[in-house]
């Protein structure tokens, strides 16, 4: 079966500094995969390589068997690779409804229409409403995004990615900065993601990662340290050393 997302010997270096070192990773369709690692392990760089914000020094990226290594970020999004951001990247003045409608219009390829109103396609509204309801954003969908509580903004961050109906979803620390109760809402949302969507979760919240992922890849110093199912990762002495070591240093 063709992997949903595949990285082949991906390397990125800035001058002499190698931040991604020969990473090969393959995600089966529908897989729930987590990428963990201490700070500075190169997790964010890897996300930037996957989404096309950075170009790799060498190596290849394939999305459902198609080479996307050279493709610009917006084209990757159009091919079904969606992402959320570690730090909210939202539209402060737009309402959640407007933002989600915008993403849906873009996905449907009708975002260049300048002669018709936003409500011409009833299906777009239906879809936006269903999505916002599903994520518990229905009651605040008319408020400007900047006035929403942080936890809601985190959910909107995911809603925008889901509006693209992605085949592969990259979640970059979705729980960053949310309170415990908000975190629970967030996990419910993640657990309810459509099973056919392939998810790569980048996080260092161990609790979330171990509950969510079927397989885990541990990244250290830009290279893959170990890969396997949660039980194996939890028992691995090298992983313990990396994390305990990192914690004792601060």
């Amino acid at each position: 079966m063709t992997p949903a997302l595949e990285m082949r010997r991906l390397t990125k270096s800035f001058g002499g500094l190698v931040v991604t070192n020969n990473v090969s990773l393959s995600l089966a369709p529908g897989e729930r995969h987590a990428l963990i690692g201490p700070n500075g392990a190169g997790k964010t760089t890897l996300v930037n390589l996957l989404t096309g914000v950075l170009a790799p020094s060498s190596g290849e990226i394939l999305l459902h068997g198609e080479h996307i290594t050279e493709k610009r970020p917006y084209l990757r999004a159009r091919l079904g690779l969606a992402r959320t951001f570690q730090v909210n990247q939202l539209f402060p003045l737009l309402t959640p409804l407007e933002a989600v409608v915008m993403a849906i219009l873009q996905r449907r390829g009708i975002a260049t229409r300048w002669w018709s109103g936003l409500t011409r396609d009833r299906a777009v509204l239906d879809e936006a409403w269903a999505l916002l309801e599903r994520l518990g954003l229905g009651d605040c969908r008319h408020e400007p995004t900047r006035e929403l509580p942080y936890g809601r903004q985190r959910l909107l961050e995911i809603a925008l990615a889901l509006a693209l109906q992605p085949r592969v979803l990259l979640l970059d620390e979705p729980a960053a900065g949310v309170s415990e109760t908000e975190g629970r809402d967030l996990f419910t949302t993640l657990a309810a993601l459509p099973p056919e969507v392939t998810v790569l979760l980048i996080d260092h919240d161990m609790d979330l990662v171990f509950r969510f992922a079927e397989r885990i890849t541990v990244l250290v110093g830009g290279a893959v340290l170990v890969q396997g199912p949660p039980q194996q990762i939890a028992a691995d002495p090298r992983v313990r050393e990396v994390y305990l070591g990192a914690e004792s240093h601060g």
């Binding site: 970020p73 917006y74 539209f91 873009q106 996905r107 693209l164």
Partner: peptide, 12 residues
């Protein structure tokens, strides 16, 4: 509002 997010949403 956010050009970076727009390109992540598939907008050129």
């Amino acid at each position: 509002g956010n050009p970076r997010r727009m390109s992540a949403l598939g907008t050129p």
